[in-house]
């Protein structure tokens, strides 16, 4: 938590934010490059994996989950479970159609 005077929590410096941002830009470039390759299924799986890594960076640093505790982390877990279950149910249609 970087504001609000929360005690015992590490502040994230601007340099870290800038570094993460640069990392995200690099991953975006990689994503576009992989999508342009003649690589079959990798063309889809690659950008999806890269997007997942980018999401982790955004959650950890820009949304401060790296330093958050308790309920806030549970909110993310609930969201993640909802995403996985919803995705699985959609695929129960798409995969067997």
């Amino acid at each position: 938590m970087s504001e609000g005077g929360e005690e015992g929590r590490e502040r994230t410096g601007y340099a870290t934010y800038a570094l993460v941002w640069l990392g995200l830009m690099g991953l975006t470039w990689l994503s576009v490059t992989v999508a342009g390759l003649e690589a079959g299924a990798l063309k889809i799986a690659g950008p999806l994996v890269i997007a997942a890594i980018k999401a982790v960076f955004v959650l950890a640093f820009f949304m401060h989950l790296k330093t958050e505790r308790g309920l806030i982390r549970w909110v993310v877990v609930i969201g993640l479970i909802a995403f996985i279950v919803s995705g699985a149910l959609v695929f129960s249609d798409v995969a067997y159609r």
């Binding site: 909802a82 279950v85 919803s86 149910l89 129960s92 249609d93 798409v94 995969a95 067997y96 159609r97």
Partner: peptide
């Protein structure tokens, strides 16, 4: 939150999904 597919039984979604 897991029942939404019952709105789509005749929309062309899979039978497996329909049963679930």
């Amino acid at each position: 939150s897991l029942v939404w597919g019952h709105h789509m039984f005749v929309s062309g979604s899979s039978y497996t999904a329909g049963v679930i």
